[in-house]
Amino acid sequence: MSDHQTPRVNASYVSNFTGQNVRIAGKVLQIHGNSATIDAQGTVAIQLDAGTHIKTVGNVVEVIGKVNGDQSIKELFSSDFGPNVELSAIEAVVQATHTYRELFYDAKQ
């Protein structure tokens, strides 16, 4: 069951989830070949998958991926949310996820 859990995080939570799958949403800052950076309350590097949906700088994307040892994220899947998404709401969801964890994910032992 917890295999399917991908807690929603921002840049500052990434380091708590090394080796695990997470969801991170943010604004695309740069795309260079097979890597990109997004702003999710801090800059996060994404290692792009071949089938990535991260194509437009300035759009908000949600990335499901695995946190590497260097705190970058290896993309498994992404969704393009378009340019008109409220970033403060995304941040509020991240805070709710970790403050009321019982609703969102089980802690890894």
Partner: peptide
């Protein structure tokens, strides 16, 4: 896609 965030905040508020 704001509906996604809205939903999770609503979940939290109702909880």
């Amino acid at each position: 896609f704001n509906e996604v965030q809205c939903h999770f905040l609503e979940v939290t508020a109702v909880h």
